[in-house]
């Protein structure tokens, strides 16, 4: 095998017994911070509601001590077991992660169990230090899978659930058969160009297409058109 070119991206592939490679997109610090903020906001909201409820119940009677004790217990559970409960019993994602479209998986791509969830969440204070996830940020930026320290010990990572929205190549392009045999990676590059061409300025598309003049035998608008034609040809004209 020739060594794969070093591509810097957030895709992690895993080979399955079904003989296909599945691709996962690991989530970086920004979407995770968003998810954390949503979770935090929800917890604060729950605290406020609980506090109001318990003041209403306990303010008057002898039940005050019970109410406060239950409040402290619930606050403790919310603080430490919010994510653990959600990850183990509700599909690997705290409500905030679910809202942002993230979930926690093991590095082999499978759902987390109680062991992994306990580790990554109880080790959170170490990542939180010195202020606001400083350690966690450094740890995840130095990791190929954006793993904070807790993730590394637990063997977990946070991935995007859904693929990003992707423009579809316009299907009206007339197929253009390339004069030479193209390798798979080359076809992929041309297909991706065709998909993105609609989002590029005409000048930029031409600039890119002109570099493949040797392949298309044309420059300018015609070169772009032929490249899109190759993508159309690749998609419809081949059988494996």
């Amino acid at each position: 095998m020739t060594p794969a070119p070093a591509i810097v991206d957030t895709l992690r592939t895993l080979e399955t017994p079904e003989g296909v490679e599945l691709t996962m997109r690991v989530a970086g610090p920004y979407p995770r911070a968003c998810a954390w903020l949503v979770d935090f906001g929800m917890r604060v909201g729950i605290y406020v509601v609980l506090a109001i409820g318990f003041v209403a119940v306990g303010g008057s009677t002898r039940m005050g001590g019970v109410a406060l004790g239950v409040f402290l217990t619930l606050a403790f559970l919310l603080e430490w077991f919010w994510s653990i409960g959600a990850e183990v019993w509700f599909g690997g994602a705290s409500p905030g992660k679910r809202y942002v479209g993230l979930r926690v998986v093991r590095t082999d791509g499978l759902p987390v169990g109680l062991t992994e969830s306990l580790l990554r969440n109880l080790l959170r204070p170490a990542d939180f230090l010195p202020v606001f996830y400083g350690v966690g940020l450094i740890a995840s930026l130095t990791s190929a899978r954006f793993q904070r320290l807790g993730d590394r010990v637990a063997g977990t990572m946070v991935v995007h659930v859904d693929p990003p929205p992707r423009p579809r190549r316009s299907s009206s392009d007339e197929a253009f058969s390339p004069p030479v045999q193209l390798r798979s990676a080359e076809v992929e590059a041309i297909t991706e160009f065709a998909e993105r061409a609609s989002g590029l300025t005409a000048a930029r598309a031409i600039e890119l297409a002109d570099r493949l003049e040797g392949l298309t035998g044309a420059t300018g608008e015609e070169g772009v058109r032929r490249l899109r034609g190759i993508a159309s040809w690749a998609e419809g004209g081949r059988s494996s």
């Binding site: 001590g65 019970v66 406060l68 402290l72 403790f76 430490w80 109880l122 080790l123």
Partner: peptide, 23 residues
Amino acid sequence: GDDTLMFGHYLSNNTSIGFRTFA
């Protein structure tokens, strides 16, 4: 009532110390 209040206090305080020690 006082006992329950203290239960909540002991649980959250002591267990949190344990978890922080671990982390």
